[in-house]
Design a protein around this nucleic acid. Structure first.
Lengths: 248, 248
DNA sequence: TAGATTGTTAATCGATTAACAATC
DNA sequence: TAGATTGTTAATCGATTAACAATC
């Protein structure tokens, strides 16, 4: 039974769950390649570092997918998570800023491809414009408008220097791009209903350094999936060798 | 008055606050270079995308730093945040995995330097070992132990491929490194009391894509600082030009 | 004194998780 | 039937924020 309290009757999935689903997805893929048919919430929890109850609660948002006494069908669950992220009808994404980080993301095998396709790479530096990065020709920012319109782009990844971030963001918003993943260490202030997601790598390091000094080992659970702190109190038995599940 | 409920009488700063302090810090530095002496929680809130009450609550964790009716002294507050992250006595950090992402972080001006110093770069590829990256000679993993001991390293950044992440993590833990910032899209399972922070860039993009499709614009506040989703409903007046503060 | 702004309280909201009935 | 495991409830915990007394 699908939960449906969204305004339009759609499923409402909490942020924390959205950030964990891809983690489960990767575990499912490992299980699938290992030929495993089913997986329990206990196993998913162990391997993802989450509480088994959290896993079940997360998955129950997608519908009634499990079978009591048996667990979840690996392939079916994987397909359901793909469906949530619309992995079959990927959206066009552009990346602005072909510096070191931008290049790293473009080259990365895992960054794009889970519901997104890179359809354009832009940079302001004339020396970089026209060069190829992983099959993408770096374009001038003057071509932003055209590419955005052509591919109906709504999402942009910002890997520009912090000093240009605000200017570029404004330009993107003006062109109709209203979802930004901003890697520049700068807060963006743009009008309209624009959703901005900030990823600030130096803050992650600072936070870890803070807890190092506190000497606390602060677990507190893996807070918001992605960037959670997780203290592992014991060696976790790896799947694969395990028979059915209930290992300690 | 310092809050002190930590076991040993030290200040207990919540995770969410730790992730926002560096954001405030950057705003303070901008204010300082602009010659501004004080800043209000309202301004800090506007510029960081947080609620003013949240800002005050965050800052109150560090002590009683503000002056009623006036605001916070920019330089003093900046120093206090530096103190929290021990920016004056930086800790040695090593980076393992000199691929695209690793290089991007090493080259980044903002990644290291806020309480951390890069003291070693490692890679498994013989073609990369011995080369220089931003003044650091890439070392073989065989030299891990020596460097860790020499610089008393407790923190490592993992930018290895996901397939090597587990192996490298085990090796680091064995050598006594018990804080890991893991960029590999893989959950790590290690024994002992190791604090692991996960940064999974593809998940950030997937999450943004999810909300794009939901069409919800889902604000919900910038959840966990760093990686929060922030929907900007209106153009925010930028500081600098503003006189004292109370705009809006 | 009047205006501004902090620090803190209390209400609210959202996320986590133990517990257990339902059920394969 | 007995064992396993889900889906969901209810308790708990932590984070956000409106409101306001304190005070510069």
């Amino acid at each position: 039974m699908l939960e449906s309290d969204g305004e339009n009757g759609t499923v409402r999935i909490p942020e924390a769950t959205v950030l964990r689903l891809p983690v489960y997805q990767r575990i499912l893929q490992t299980f699938a390649s290992a030929g495993r048919r089913t997986i329990s919430s206990a196993d998913l929890g162990r391997l993802s570092g989450e509480n088994a109850a959290s896993v079940r609660r997360d998955l129950s948002r997608l519908g009634t997918l499990g079978t009591r006494g048996t667990g979840y069908d690996v392939k079916m669950l994987s397909r359901q998570i793909d469906r949530v992220f619309a992995a079959d009808s990927p959206q066009g994404v552009i990346l602005v800023g072909a510096g070191n980080l931008g290049r790293a993301l473009i080259h990365s095998e895992s960054f794009f491809g889970h519901g997104s396709v890179l359809v354009g790479v832009f940079d302001a530096d004339p020396k970089v414009i026209g060069t190829q990065i992983s099959g993408h020709t770096v374009q001038s920012e003057d071509e932003l408008e055209q590419t955005v319109a052509e591919h109906d782009v709504h999402l942009a990844v910002l890997t520009v220097p912090p000093s240009s971030a605000q200017r570029v963001a404004e330009r993107l918003v003006a062109v109709g791009v209203h979802r930004l993943l901003n890697f520049a260490p700068a807060r963006l202030h743009v009008g309209g209903h624009v959703t901005i997601r900030y990823v600030d790598l130096s803050i992650e390091l600072q936070a870890l350094g803070f807890y190092a000094r506190e000497g606390e080992g602060r677990a507190g659970g893996p807070s918001v999936g992605t960037a959670g702190i997780l203290t592992t109190p014991s060696v976790l038995s790896e799947m694969g060798t395990r028979r059915s599940s209930s290992a300690r």
